[in-house]
Design a protein around this nucleic acid. Structure first.
Lengths: 247, 247
DNA sequence: ACAAATAGGACATAAAACGGCGTATTATTC
DNA sequence: GAATAATACGCCGTTTTATGTCCTATTTGT
């Protein structure tokens, strides 16, 4: 028996709408009665929910009569992603990389995704975010010895690096050179360079006061500093670009 | 002023909460009064909204006293993406590619994104979606002559191809061979092969009844058929794999 | 013809959303 | 130390949304 349930507040109702959408995406058609049962509300309420969703443009189809039911056109499934800040940054950088790689198969629907992503950043960061594409460089694939010598960078390092790169903040890193020498530096990460599958950071080394190139998987630890840096043109890094044969 | 604002219904309120979240992400601190003004509601209402958002786990910080205000920890910005079906498919494939490319810089936070994406598909499609990684192959970069001869595939074709690939449906394609010969075929797209930046489809050609390789940018038109196909192992395509030097 | 399903109108009602007011608290400024 | 500017939050009254119930119309398959 349908007792007087507490009236759903805004969130609860939106959640219900989301869940209904999810159920409707399933191939198995569900009737209004089913939905009413699962959500513990009356048929009428479900009907009203559907009304709202239709008004929002969701292509919900209903078949009347015996064996009928409600379902949503499969090709219209709405995916809702809730991204944390770190995820947003990573996804944004990945999209920029895909775009720079010029592989058309990537770019089919990515424009709208990128626009939505950018919109989720604060106004102050928009400019930085929009210019990110220019700061990602693609070079030829790495040579086999380099590929095999590649280590697995720590997610924590990658994440810090991404954020500092995006925010144009200085980073303090622990770096291990090829010969095993360890050093601690403060760098300004200007460009990311992909020699698939190896990543490099083209940065200004604030200790040596000179441009340097760091291989991401050799960075042991990274800490984002408070200080921002001003972006420099790619001219400073031209020697490195030549060396890696940037496209 | 007799502002007879209609009271917000569930959607309107959720939108307001979202907008407040967006404003809070901005570096400039806003006071409750500001928010009240922008949204045309009372301070008390904004206070209640903040209360709700805090209860949801959003790290909203408030500073009392002069010059104070409300703001959200910048590193916690929540980005909401509403993806259409086509966008979900494309993003999913792109993530799978990134994963296969084994570039660790991609993979920092992508796991959770992928999980959320998969969750937005219907139960029937989950299995297909989860197995998609194995069906994407990465080879060495294309030779320069091939790279320069690459055309720009039509978004419509790419989209159809993606969906047919994911759904394991047959596709009818109009194909133009290197020598200009045009043909119409019905193929089963088993694998996608990336020789950056060129894409190939390893498919079973149902007219010739033999495995064939098609370059995506040479496909002029694609129509998803109704019939599904059963996935075959990669053995059938081994000659092609050898030819393209798959990693 | 009947049963099963959607579509939606009308009405009543409880609870949520909201505004307004008041008080407590905290921090800055003079 | 006092004034000021901000958040935090409790209470109350009003508005109206969200919901349930009952109802009729319409479609459709058996």
């Amino acid at each position: 028996m349908t007792q007087k349930r507490t009236r759903a507040d805004a969130q609860t109702r939106m959640m219900r709408l989301d869940q209904i959408a999810a159920q409707l995406k399933g191939e198995e058609p569900c009737t209004v009665e089913d939905l009413a049962q699962t959500h513990g509300v009356s048929r009428r309420t479900i009907a009203r929910d559907l009304e709202i969703m239709r008004a929002q443009g969701l292509p919900i189809e209903a078949e009347r009569g015996r064996g009928g039911g409600v379902r949503m056109d499969v090709n219209w499934g709405v995916g809702r992603l809730n991204l944390s800040y770190a995820e947003s940054v990573d996804l944004l950088i990945s999209l920029a990389v895909a775009e720079q790689m010029n592989s058309p198969l990537f770019l089919a629907q990515m424009g709208s995704i990128r626009r939505q992503l950018i919109a989720s950043f604060s106004r102050e960061k928009r400019r930085a975010v929009e210019g990110i594409k220019k700061r990602i460089l693609i070079a030829e694939q790495a040579s086999l010895p380099v590929q095999t010598s590649m280590g697995k960078p720590k997610p924590r390092v990658v994440q810090t690096l991404h954020q500092a790169f995006l925010n144009q903040k200085l980073v303090e890193i622990d770096y291990v050179r090829e010969d095993g020498t360890k050093s601690k530096r403060t760098i300004a990460p200007h460009y990311l360079l992909l020699c698939s599958p190896v990543w490099y950071v083209l940065a200004w080394d604030h200790l040596r006061d000179a441009p340097r190139t760091f291989r991401c998987d050799r960075i042991q630890k990274a800490t984002e500093e408070f200080e921002k840096f001003a972006l420099q043109g790619p001219k400073v890094f031209e020697p490195a670009l030549d060396h890696y044969n940037v496209l």
